[in-house]
Design a protein around this nucleic acid. Structure first.
Lengths: 344, 344
DNA sequence: TTGAAAGCGATACCAT
DNA sequence: ATGGTATCGCTTTCAA
């Protein structure tokens, strides 16, 4: 096999102890002590020794061996973040912000993408579990309740965001108010004077999409504006989109809502293919696109999750659960919108 | 302090040993054995005991404690990936692919974003170093040679991608052929019949940008086509872009190249602000945008890194360096391009 | 083919 | 205020 020798660490706690002329217990003690407001070491060691120890550690370039520390304490100072696709800018931004917050509190963050596949979701949860994370922040895919339950059984805290698993108990939640998001989308359109609103989505039981559509319908009803929704098969959505939009136009629909990221992409793609002008032919509201989408598509408006807020709420909820056994509650977030620069 | 008891693991190697009626050494031995082509365990243990041990481990739900294993072996089966911004789709895609490849080989991947700031770069390298990664894949920012040297001093392998640190020795490299990318951009434009090509960039010594511009100039020269480049101050690029493009148009420039991601964003933004039509007023080639950009901006063409290839080359080079002491070499990648759907 | 035992480095209990 | 030491779970050498 490998004839690589066991490489021992260059500077261990023992070296620091010797160099400082104290015991390793004391070094560990001091190095793990909290700091008071004036920078004093809050431990029974005398300030003088404490300072000498810290100074020695720095001089020798000592850094705690994480593996040893984890092994002993069972803590890992690591959190796991699971999303469907980190190269989706929306998730990328949330992950970045979580990473930043986590780093500030001394946590390491593990990221993984599931591609919305249950099987890889399960594998990733296991992988993180066995890598020893202290908690999870998860945008779940449908039908992974068992996997989440497995985490909870180990008494590790879980915060869900972006998508809910209705009925799942014992988890924290940071969710967009999707009904409000739907209403917001419709309002963006009526404000431009649109008179007949269409929505395209695929066949699904994802609560997010259902709630968004419900919100749209509700708002349109209140405004006394006709609202039509087209429901496509998920697999053929991209293809069917073109004819659906074509027909909608014929039928006098003057505004279209694409209620998710994937639908928005396919929708914009179809509109380009049809050579339609936005907002000339249609006014459009997309969902879950990145902040910069407006730059690329000046005619379109978007409804989004406030990524920073989602990241902050999720991480703070998780870290307080890990550290202080803080409550895992449900937080509902208000949607954000970006107006297109060319409107009707 | 914490009155949380030391939580011991639910199933340890000792439990497996007892349940299987063998010693822990044997369990470890078998569980770490390589598998032969027929699935046999390549170790001195008898196949029968080996199978019994594996079966017992599975039945009990045993999973190796990573901390203990790392502590003992010094190996961590973890790699660190550092980029400027993981929410940049280009990097997001590369990271995803690396994660996937790494997972297949049993590695855990740590990601981090530096925002192109030297100081956070250094901190992240340290963080990963002390977290115990076995190697690095890095898109560096300028002036971090010292930090890379620190990694090399610990004899950990490093593969650079996206951006080079010229003169740095002992690292692997997976880089785009930037000169060729520049030439490619010009060719996309001349092919559409453009007669006067402009390029906008900011003042910099980043080799990537310099090489791209050189490639553009070279190709334009060979084609006997006038080539003008405008160099802006980095800080005011966004603002200045508008007037630069306005003037270019006046001067008869009929094609513009934006030679990086950031420049492309600001450029497209300025074009929208000016109300210019693409490709009516200008033909445009942008750089480093995601695959889907064409959907959002039908008139634009893009030159990109082949993200999957970059990820594959980088990871394979790193993993072979980690496992088999494989060579760290320099690989130059050919650029990829996407044609806009509406061209001149 | 199998097992005993010595650590890897840090922590935390219990002494002093 | 400080130190001795058992222990976390696993790997690996050496002996049987």
């Amino acid at each position: 096999m490998s004839d690589r020798p066991i490489v021992s660490q260059e500077v261990t706690i023992r070296d620091v102890a010797e160099a400082a002329g104290v015991s390793i217990s004391l070094v560990s003690f001091v190095l793990n002590a909290r700091r008071g407001p004036g920078g004093e070491y809050l431990c029974s060691a005398s300030q003088k020794t404490a300072e000498r120890i810290v100074e020695t550690a720095e001089r020798l370039g000592y850094h705690r061996n994480k593996a040893a520390s984890s092994l002993r304490t069972g803590r890992n100072d690591t959190i796991g973040v699971i999303v469907s696709d980190i190269s989706n800018t929306c998730f990328g931004q949330i992950c970045r912000k979580i990473e930043k917050l986590a780093t500030e509190l001394g946590y390491l963050t593990l990221f993984a993408s599931t591609d919305d596949r249950k099987e890889s979701f399960r594998q990733l949860v296991d992988k993180f579990l066995y890598s020893g994370v202290d908690g999870f922040i998860i945008a779940p895919c449908n039908g992974v309740e068992d996997s989440i339950a497995k985490i909870l059984k180990r008494r590790l805290p879980v915060v869900l965001f972006d998508r809910d698993l209705p009925g799942m108990e014992g988890v924290g939640r940071v969710l967009l108010d999707n009904e409000k998001a739907g209403r917001c989308a419709v309002r963006l359109l009526t404000r431009q004077g649109c008179r007949h609103i269409g929505l395209v989505r695929y066949e699904t039981d994802i609560p997010t999409l259902i709630a968004r559509e419900a919100g749209c319908r509700l708002e349109a009803q209140q405004d006394g504006i006709p609202f039509t929704s087209a429901i496509l098969a998920r697999e053929t959505m991209r293809r069917d989109m073109v004819s659906v939009l074509h027909n909608a136009r014929e039928e006098g629909v003057d505004a279209i809502i694409f209620p998710s990221n994937a639908i928005t992409i396919d929708g914009i793609s179809a509109i380009n293919e049809l050579g339609f002008d936005v907002p000339g032919d249609f006014a459009v509201v997309g969902f879950d696109q990145e902040d910069r989408s407006e730059i690329f598509t000046p005619g379109y408006s978007f409804v989004n999750q406030p990524t920073k807020l989602v990241a902050e709420y999720s991480f703070r909820m998780l870290s307080s659960a890990i550290r202080d056994n803080g409550a895992l509650e449900t937080r509902i977030i208000n949607p954000l919108y970006t107006l297109g620069s060319r409107l009707k």
